[in-house]
Design a protein around this nucleic acid. Structure first.
Length: 495
RNA sequence: GCACCGGUGGCGAAGUGGCUAACGCGCUGGUCUGCAAAACCAGUAUUCGCCGGUUCAAUCCCGGCCCGGUGCUCCA
């Protein structure tokens, strides 16, 4: 079955296809690097990651371009306030952005494009539009796009230009444009602003032209998929289409992918509501990166999701169950008592669920249904292991399901402690005081110290000195370390 | 105001014109254990926002209403 995805352009689910060598050429609007990323940003990037990982699982090659918007009004404003050159200002947040992406296990796109490194291409694009009088220069030196020249305007967002008459909302006279809806391609320099000297005049690019130029530079005038947050559909993506198609006379992106916004504790996330969280805020509260990833990815991208702290805890518990299961299957390999005979019923179920897993992802990236199939396998295999009907031949197929799961979800390997540690180091360097005490306590004990205490406890228990053993167990529990007395020995993990 | 999307158990959240309405967490019970914890198993919505309609049959289709969200205004 082919991978199907909702296409905003046309508003229906369509097969996803690559027009060149089975390599999916996709462009995704990346961050504007003026501050630390918040969880809403990361929901979008996480679902882009699900898309690319799923595409690869289905056999596509990938050429994924993501831009960094490193010049815009907010950047100029903040850099000026901080008395820094914009490049220096944005470098800090770009670095932070990629640290966060790494923490969340979001894969790097094949190409990272920066607006400030693509100015020449933007200028050339505007000049091409100007040569057909689609772009025009206003009196203040800014360049605008003449929307009247693109009859298809509105085809992505379903806007009807008839209903947005010139001057209906905006006093045209305030602008030096020919029509109120015309948007800026190039903004003339204002006093004190960072600007580029170009044949168009001295100034800086408009936001929309940046993405058109970067996408076409790396993917050509026509490519497979373009994505971003739902708010970008209009006007940003609509404007990209208008500029690009007027310049190239070819369809721009064939498939448009938009990720819906999330709510936080049932409300729109906003600073004024007090429910605005960056990834770093959550890490410092003691939540794990893997739990954040799993939660954000578990609700399909086209659904509004409600992000809650309770949900984060649940997500961490669910991951714990999966990791425990993965270890149990791994251990089964060296269990000599394991029956040789294949449990055919279990095997049939595992195969059925693997198919269901793939089908769920094919069906517009239904991550909720996909993970359900994996939990079905976990339960069935645990039952078989409990009643000794799990055969050696069942190991590989079950591991195959876990691999397929992790190829997209990527939460089975525990890297959380390192991520939290880095977040705490950053917070201390920044002088932040809002670090969860239990996080600091947990990081105050090393793995070696834990191992030593556990060894001491094991010795005490052998001598049936349970009082001492329990005291050590309690001491470790206070530092967030859980001890498990299994048949094969003692194991531990950080909570 | 106009346009679009959604409202499913304690919570998160799939899904379908008729088969027991997934899955996860939580909770309750059990297995295991020196005791625990952890782990594992089992049970846990006669019901899918409200009111009408279509249909032999609707949570799923249609209409209205209420509520939440998004866009229309360079927020992912």
């Amino acid at each position: 079955m082919a991978m199907e995805l909702f296409n905003t352009l046309g508003s229906r689910v369509e097969p996803l296809s690559a027009s060149e060598n089975n390599t999916l050429r996709m462009y995704c609007c990346g961050p504007t690097v003026y501050d630390y990323g918040h969880i809403g940003n990361f929901r979008t990037f996480l679902h882009m990651d699900v898309l690319r990982r799923t595409a690869r699982l289905k056999g596509f090659g990938l050429k994924h371009v993501m831009n960094i918007t490193d010049v815009d009004d907010k950047i100029i404003r903040n850099a000026t306030a901080a008395n820094l050159p914009i490049g220096e200002y944005t470098a800090k947040y770009e670095r932070a952005f990629f640290e966060d992406m790494d923490a969340l296990r979001v894969e790097r796109p094949e190409v990272i494009a920066r607006a400030t490194e693509t100015i020449a291409e933007m200028v050339a694009l505007i000049e091409r539009l100007a040569s057909e009088d689609i772009a025009y220069k206003a009196e203040d030196g800014s360049w605008y796009f003449r929307i009247a020249r693109f009859p298809d305007y509105g085809k992505l967002s379903g806007k009807d230009l008839e209903g947005i008459e010139d001057g209906a909302r905006v006093d045209v006279d305030e602008y030096e444009k020919d029509a109120a809806r015309d948007f800026a391609l190039w903004k003339a320099v204002k006093p004190g602003e960072h600007a580029w000297e170009t044949p168009l005049g001295t100034g800086r690019p408009g936001w929309h032209i940046e993405c058109s130029a970067m996408a076409m530079k790396h993917l050509g005038p026509s490519f497979d998929l373009h994505g971003g947050g739902e708010d970008l559909a209009f006007p940003h993506h609509e404007n990209e289409i208008a500029q690009s198609e007027c310049a190239s006379h070819q369809p721009f992106a064939r498939h448009w992918f938009h990720v819906r916004f999330l709510l936080v504790e049932g409300k729109k996330m906003s600073k004024s509501e007090g429910n605005f969280y960056t990834l770093r805020d959550l890490l410092l509260k003691g939540y794990r990166a893997s739990a954040i990833r799993f939660l954000l990815v578990s609700v399909p991208y086209r659904h509004q999701m409600n992000f809650t702290f309770e949900g984060l805890t649940e997500s961490a518990n669910a991951i714990e169950r999966l990791r425990t299961f993965a270890r149990r299957i791994e251990a089964a390999g060296s269990n000599t008592a394991l029956p040789e005979a294949l449990n055919a019923d279990l095997d049939a179920l595992v195969n059925e669920k693997l198919t269901a897993y793939g089908a769920a992802l094919d069906n517009d990236l239904n991550t909720a249904e996909a993970r359900a199939a994996v939990f079905d396998v976990v339960r069935a295999a645990n039952i078989a292991l409990d009643n000794s009907s799990f055969g050696r031949g069942n190991i590989a197929p079950v591991q195959g399901v876990l691999q397929a799961f992790d190829a997209v979800f990527d939460v089975l390997t525990d890297r959380d402690a390192d991520v939290s540690k880095a977040a705490v180091a950053w917070a201390k360097a920044e002088g932040r005081a809002d670090i969860a005490p239990e996080l600091l306590v947990a990081q105050s004990i090393s793995d070696a110290e834990i191992e030593a205490l556990i060894a001491e406890r094991t010795d005490a228990r052998k001598l049936r000195n349970f009082a001492r053993g329990d005291a050590i167990r309690n001491e470790l529990a206070e530092k967030g370390v859980l001890i498990e007395d299994g048949k094969a020995g003692v194991t531990w993990k950080r909570r």
